[in-house]
């Protein structure tokens, strides 16, 4: 059983890169424009929500021509992201960003379904727990992310079979998004999928 205790390990402040981080980084890097010598004005603007250690944002900043903003609720996480050379912002999901600002928004959300009586109430729990159905953070994200996307903007969202991929696709549909699976990887207890959401 994949549970918080085994995923937490010893780190209690900031979620460190794992298989899900790598899958999201690979998918985003392969689909965002790379190289090129366009000026600053032409660079795609990318936001990573819940950046944690900053691993995914740093990969995108290195491997594509995008300007990457990394945000997190967790002060320790934005500190690590800033130390990694990223433009970091402490934020609740997309709330402090301008309408239509981003060409892409990336999110590897907390998604592990969690018994409410069995939560830790520390930063690592916030990074992992998706509430009872695994979608307590994904649902508000889907509600709000459309506001900050440019007209042709896309979302790269990491989802797990543990949180119910179909339910998330349906919910995205209610918010006006079409969804395509652009990467997936199976593990003994879950399948991870990167969804590209577009309008």
């Amino acid at each position: 059983m994949t549970d918080l205790a085994t995923r937490r390990g010893l780190e209690t402040d900031v979620y460190q890169p794992a298989e899900d981080s790598e899958l999201l980084a690979d998918a985003a890097c392969s689909r965002l424009p790379s190289g090129g010598d366009g000026g600053d004005e032409d660079r795609p603007l990318v936001l990573e929500v819940g950046t944690g250690s900053g691993y995914v944002a740093a990969r995108v900043a290195e491997e594509t021509e995008a300007r990457v903003i990394a945000s997190d609720l967790n002060p320790h996480a934005v500190g690590q992201a800033a130390d990694a050379g990223l433009e970091a912002v402490r934020a609740d999901l997309v709330s402090p960003f301008a309408d239509g600002a981003f060409d892409a928004v990336l999110f590897n959300p907390p998604y592990l379904p969690t018994d409410p009586d069995n939560e830790w109430d520390d930063w690592m729990e916030r990074a992992l727990s998706g509430g009872e159905d695994g979608r307590a953070v994904v649902d508000p994200f889907l509600e709000r992310v459309g506001r900050v996307l440019a007209p042709e903007g896309v979302v790269y969202l990491l989802v797990s079979s543990l949180a119910g991929v179909e339910e998330i696709v349906d919910r995205a549909g209610e918010e006006g998004f079409s969804a395509a699976a652009v990467a997936d990887e199976s593990f003994p207890f879950e399948t991870l999928t990167v969804l590209e959401l577009f309008r």
Partner: peptide, 22 residues
């Protein structure tokens, strides 16, 4: 008012700013 601390802007809404798990 939203503070910039150690070069990082803290744009949490005021009611979430003090929320700090252990």
């Amino acid at each position: 008012r939203y503070p910039i601390e150690d070069g990082i802007p803290n744009l949490l809404p005021p009611d979430m700013r003090e929320e700090t798990p252990a």
